[in-house]
């Protein structure tokens, strides 16, 4: 087990390295001059040249990459020979010259917002999705099953920007049930935090809950004809125990896989919900940086999202071994 985890972590690091190379070189080949972005309207050819030098964009791509990786481990200093050098402590993901801030501190500021958004929605959708899925499976073929399936189909096919805008319009603007969303940390003002997060949570959860409801229902129904489920019935167990303890447990693997990867994906930023509800999370940061072609931020965010997915994959694989004793992690 320990050896397995060790090997997986090594593999993870290799993957991240390869990814960083790919991301770095791909983004560097994009059209557009990063140096131009540093001065906006005030740009003159001389200023652009100077900034290019300050940022290190004048150097060969390979050297730039070397500096970038070096920054992650040891920190780096931008415009070292200018009167006001910018020190960027390790781990340094780069420096955004359009925002005049380290990428790392931008990310650490936005990450908690996205974290709470993703985790809150995750809890809601898993609870709602899985329990509705079990409910539908228990009532398979009856009107309750069809109703649940119908609702999930509606939830599944409604685009989240649509649900988001509708909710925002009625709840906030028309009925004034909630204040205009403005993010605060839950440790600062829990009430306001919840009032801000509840709508985006719902928007995200609707889509995912619909998917997990179907997934759970289908998984349960698929294993419901298996021999060991028949054995469970032959013991005289109540149908609910048969479905939850025996059938659901057996059909859990794909649910865990999806849950892990979906959560990881969301932790990288929920672009639509964050934008509609004015949440300064990673999704908003990403959109903003892309519109401004802020390469250092985009590179940093891409690497972060990719690492999340890679870590989630490892966690999911470890969970398999917890769920299914036949899985040997060696």
């Amino acid at each position: 087990m320990a050896a397995y985890i060790f090997r997986r972590v090594l593999l993870m690091i290799t993957l991240l390295f390869m990814l960083s190379v790919a991301v770095f070189f791909l983004f560097n080949m994009l059209p557009g001059d990063p140096a131009r972005l540093t001065c906006g309207k005030a740009c003159t050819p001389d200023l652009i040249e100077a900034n290019r030098k300050r940022l290190g964009y004048d150097q060969p791509v390979l050297v730039q990459y070397q500096n970038f990786v070096g920054g992650i481990f040891f920190g780096r200093t931008f415009s070292a020979d200018s009167p006001e050098p910018i020190k960027c402590e390790a781990p340094c993901l780069g420096y955004s010259f359009s925002r005049h801030e380290e990428v790392m501190s931008l990310i650490t500021r936005a990450a908690p917002v996205t974290f709470w958004l993703a985790v809150g929605a995750f809890i809601i959708w898993l609870t709602v999705g899985i329990s509705l899925g079990i409910f539908a499976a228990l009532r398979r073929g009856r009107w309750q099953d069809r109703l649940t399936l119908g609702i999930s189909l509606v939830g599944y096919s409604m685009p989240s920007f649509f649900i988001g805008l509708i909710l925002y319009y009625f709840v906030v603007i028309q009925w004034k049930l909630l204040d205009k969303p403005e993010y605060v940390s839950p440790f600062e003002d829990l009430g306001k935090f919840l009032a801000t997060m509840i709508l985006p949570w719902i928007v995200l959860a609707v889509l995912y809950a619909a998917f997990y409801m179907r997934l759970t229902r289908n998984q349960v129904l698929e294993v419901l004809n298996d021999d060991y489920v028949r054995t469970a019935r032959a013991k005289g167990l109540p149908e609910r125990t048969v479905v939850v303890k025996h059938a659901l447990r057996a059909g859990l693997t794909p649910i865990v896989t999806s849950a892990g990867l979906d959560l990881a994906g969301l932790l990288g930023g929920a672009i639509i919900s964050e934008n509609i509800f004015n949440l300064p999370g990673l999704g908003s940061l990403a959109v903003d940086s892309i519109t401004k072609s802020d390469l250092p931020i985009i590179t940093g965010l891409t690497l972060l999202t990719a690492s999340l997915i890679i870590v989630a994959n490892l966690v999911v694989d470890l969970l398999y071994a917890v769920i299914d004793p036949r899985v040997r992690l060696t």
Binding site: A234, H246, R249, A250
Partner: peptide, 24 residues
């Protein structure tokens, strides 16, 4: 019937490989 199943009457099946729950 559920109260009798596994209690007054019990059944064993053909395939013991698949008749036991693999996860418990």
């Amino acid at each position: 019937i559920r109260k009798l199943r596994g209690n007054k009457m019990a059944m064993i099946f053909q395939d013991p490989m698949s008749s036991l729950h693999p996860f418990y």
